[in-house]
Simulated scan of single mutants.
Amino acid sequence: MITDKVQTAKIQLGDHIEAWHNGKLFHKGRVTDVVHSLDLIWIRDARTGTRKLLDPDALEIIKVEAPQAAG
């Protein structure tokens, strides 16, 4: 898996990201909405299927490759 720490301004709709804090994975999923002027990022959480608002000031946002489809 290729990872790349990114600034909020570089995150786009459809990107797959992970959100880390103190070395622990808190959320991962596909970006559904971004408001660059306010540094707001929403994802569809891959584990729960719920929509999550991420705080880039509190979390380390890592851009990752899209998960491979099963089969």
Rank of each mutant, 00 (worst) to 15 (best):
M1I: 13
M1P: 13
I2L: 11
I2N: 14
T3A: 04
T3I: 03
T3E: 11
D4L: 07
K5M: 06
K5P: 05
V6D: 01
V6P: 03
Q7V: 11
T8C: 15
A9M: 11
I11Y: 05
I11F: 04
Q12C: 10
Q12R: 15
L13Y: 12
L13H: 13
L13I: 15
G14H: 13
D15V: 11
H16V: 06
H16C: 01
H16R: 05
H16I: 01
H16M: 00
I17V: 15
E18K: 09
E18P: 00
A19Y: 02
A19I: 02
W20Y: 08
W20P: 00
H21E: 14
H21W: 07
H21K: 14
H21F: 05
N22G: 00
N22I: 01
G23K: 10
G23D: 06
G23H: 09
G23W: 13
K24S: 07
K24Q: 14
K24F: 10
L25S: 10
F26I: 10
K28H: 08
G29R: 06
G29N: 04
R30G: 01
R30Y: 08
V31A: 08
V31K: 12
V31S: 12
T32M: 13
T32L: 06
D33G: 00
D33K: 15
D33C: 09
V35W: 07
V35M: 09
V35Q: 07
S37R: 09
S37D: 14
D39Q: 12
D39T: 01
L40E: 14
W42R: 12
W42I: 01
I43M: 09
R44L: 14
D45C: 12
A46R: 02
A46T: 02
R47Y: 12
R47W: 06
T48P: 08
T48I: 11
T50L: 14
T50N: 13
R51Q: 13
R51D: 11
K52H: 03
K52V: 15
K52E: 15
K52T: 12
L53P: 07
L53G: 13
L54T: 11
L54K: 07
L54Q: 10
L54D: 06
D57T: 06
A58N: 05
A58W: 08
A58P: 00
L59Q: 06
L59H: 07
E60L: 02
E60M: 01
E60V: 04
I62W: 03
I62F: 00
I62C: 00
I62L: 02
K63L: 04
K63E: 08
V64G: 05
E65N: 10
A66K: 05
P67T: 05
P67R: 02
P67N: 07
P67H: 03
Q68A: 15
A69D: 06
G71M: 04
G71N: 07
